[in-house]
Nucleic acid binder design. Structure first.
Length: 265
DNA sequence: ATGGCTTTCTACGAAAGA
């Protein structure tokens, strides 16, 4: 009868294998229903399924050697899996996208794990690749919102959209995450009808999700570049979004902290 | 930060990350 709570998390783990022990501790603590992973840095066959078997997740992986790689872990069955989002070649050589339908108790939710290119330094081929990738992604986002589903994108967008999302504008003014044309793309996606779930529910908090290795975290020189973008139908069910900053304090942490969203169905 | 950290790879330095 009562409302069903669902916890969906997104985390750029910066290598799933290097992070496996803290990742397992975190799962025990937060007990997420759905986990969207980015930068797993492993081929599909190198994903540590055995280490995670005790948690009984359904797991889908879009990995590659050395770099990038995304995955989705779900307590509920996953169907309708897709790893590409456009017709062009841009996203094919790099594993940066995976989506699936999460089936739970006659209800459901479509989720996607997104890892947009970094794009530094600005003005290089890498930056062009980022813009091209984001253009294809934007088109797909527009198509998806028209399907009027309970849908969300979660992941590392490598976009710091507003001034409030950075500790210091001087720190990022030359960075590919803070270029006007990149921020414009983010706002364009929102204009299609997506809700920036963290910002909707936490108006005045910075919500940093990334701090560079070194002294950045102790000085809180962070940026908010990981996001949940929700369709209105998903936003309607979202109660809370927060950054699990405790994970950034651990030994050998990822440089990103997890983003956690709670839903009531 | 001009990666000053961190991870990966048929590795012992280079590439990539943001």
């Amino acid at each position: 009868m009562g409302q069903e709570k669902i916890i969906v998390c997104s985390w750029n783990v910066n290598s799933i294998r290097a992070r496996i022990s803290t990742f397992k501790e975190w799962i025990k603590e937060k007990k997420p229903d759905v986990i969207l992973l980015q930068e797993i840095k492993a081929r599909n066959e190198a994903f540590p399924y055995q280490d995670l078997a005790e948690f009984n997740y359904n797991i889908i992986v879009n990995g590659q050697k050395s770099y990038n790689g995304v995955a989705i872990m779900s307590k509920y069955p996953i169907s309708d899996v897709q790893t590409s989002f456009g017709k062009t070649e841009e996203e094919i050589p790099q594993a940066r996208y995976i989506e699936g339908w999460i089936n739970f108790k006659n209800k459901g939710l479509r989720v996607a794990s997104v890892y947009a290119p970094n794009g530094n330094p600005v003005g290089t081929e890498k930056y062009k690749y980022k813009l091209d990738w984001l253009k294809v992604f934007t088109k797909y986002a527009q198509k998806k919102i028209e399907e009027e589903e309970l849908f969300l994108f979660g992941g590392d967008f490598n976009i710091c959209p507003y001034k409030i999302d950075t500790a210091n504008e001087n720190m990022v003014e030359d960075d590919a995450i803070y270029q006007e044309e990149v921020k414009y793309i983010y706002k364009k996606i929102l204009n299609y009808g997506y809700f920036d779930a963290f910002r909707c529910l936490n108006e005045n908090q910075p919500g940093f999700t990334y701090w560079d290795y070194g002294q950045a975290f102790s000085n809180n020189l962070g940026v908010r570049i990981d996001h949940f973008l929700l369709s209105s139908y998903a936003m309607d069910k979202c109660d809370k979004v927060y950054v699990d900053i405790e994970q950034r304090k651990k030994n050998k942490p990822s440089d990103h902290a997890p983003l956690i969203a709670e839903f009531s169905f």
